[in-house]
Amino acid sequence: MYTTQSQGWRTAFRAVVYPNTYRLVPKVYFPEQIHDIARATKYFLQPKVLQKYMVDPARIGISGDSAGGNLAAALGQQFVQDANLKPKIKLQALIYPVLQALDFNTPSYQQNSHTPILPRYVMVKYWVDYFKGNYDFVQAMIVNNHTSLDVEEAAALRARLNWTSLLPASITKHYKPVVPTTGNARIIQEIPQLLDARSAPLIADQEVLQLLPKTYILTCEHDVLRDDGLMYAKRLESAGVDVTLDHFEDGFHGCMIFTSWPTDFSVGIRTRNSFIKWLDQNL
């Protein structure tokens, strides 16, 4: 969570950073991580706590990268539906976020299936871990057998991540959708969390998306998650949300942490600086 501090008419050029930690697998499984960050954030938003750290309640943002981006997006959706929550979140910033587990054959998943840092097989295993699922399902999920046409539970949600309409031609290129006619309905029966918007914010209802605050989404070309972020940006824009999409052609998953010797990559420094610049201008 990021906030800026105000002192009368003058705003200090610094931010209070509240590291919202949560319990990890295998200690707990979905949705306990969301409960953890929701409880901690609500505690921080109490007037006495904000006052203690001299935080301006009108200038509070939430942010996260990768799995943290997933939780930040889920938290943002949860909070905008809570009429009793005060103060409201001013903005959200999502850094190469994980946003869906219905389609592991988006163009970016196909293009970067064996890319280092986060290959597709590893990402699918992470999802199974998150839900305490069966590793026997991994190979079937890689080819989208969990959301095949005969899996009725997925039918209504599939259109919400139809990348042939949500992504530009410069991204879709020669890639083709992978939608098997028949698959393995048992996967969704045993892991219904795959279709829960709290785990997959990309599939949330339009009525929820239109309530969200100003949003920053950073994506990287060499990342299986690239299209998750691009599609979310498109859905948010269609819902009337003010979105800044920051795409790095030479970026890779996790690159923002590589800013110190001996891994002081240029793209790491540039993504970090771009993110901080947006926060400074919008928070």
Rank of each mutant, 00 (worst) to 15 (best):
V128H: 02
K27H: 07
R120F: 13
G61M: 11
I191K: 01
V151F: 02
L279V: 12
Y43F: 15
H253C: 09
N112C: 10
V49C: 12
L24P: 09
F13K: 10
A204S: 14
P201G: 09
K277Q: 12
L149C: 13
L102I: 09
P201V: 05
H114K: 08
Q189T: 08
I188F: 00
Q110M: 14
Y135Q: 10
R186A: 10
M123I: 15
P47W: 06
V178F: 06
I60S: 05
S6I: 15
G133L: 05
P47D: 01
D36P: 07
P97H: 00
L161H: 01
D103S: 11
T181F: 06
M1C: 09
T41L: 13
T172K: 02
P177C: 07
Q193R: 02
D223G: 08
P168N: 04
I257S: 13
V128D: 02
G133Y: 04
I34A: 08
Q78G: 15
H146V: 10
R23D: 10
R10T: 14
L218V: 04
S199R: 04
Q206H: 10
L24C: 11
S6F: 14
Q210H: 09
P19K: 02
T182F: 08
G76P: 06
G64F: 07
Q5L: 14
L236W: 02
P97L: 00
N112L: 11
D264F: 07
A204F: 04
I34H: 05
Y53K: 04
Y2M: 15
G69H: 01
Q111C: 13
A159F: 03
D228Q: 05
T244R: 07
L94I: 02
T263L: 15
L236A: 02
E207Y: 05
D264Q: 08
I276E: 09
T259D: 07
L218M: 05
E32T: 14
F265A: 10
E237D: 12
R120L: 15
P31H: 00
I257F: 06
L24N: 02
T106S: 10
H222S: 14
N282L: 09
A72P: 03
D150S: 09
I89W: 00
Y109D: 09
Q46P: 13
H114G: 13
A154P: 12
Y121L: 15
T263P: 13
G251W: 00
S108L: 04
T259C: 14
Q46H: 03
F30T: 11
H35E: 13
L212Q: 06
D250E: 11
Y18K: 08
V208M: 10
I89P: 07
V243D: 01
R226Y: 03
G254I: 10
M256W: 09
L91D: 06
A74D: 03
L202V: 03
I257T: 13
L102H: 02
F258I: 15
I276V: 10
K42S: 06
I60C: 05
L211N: 05
V224S: 00
M1E: 04
A200Y: 06
R186S: 13
A67W: 01
G183M: 07
A233P: 12
S165G: 07
D250G: 06
L71V: 13
S165I: 11
V179T: 08
N70R: 03
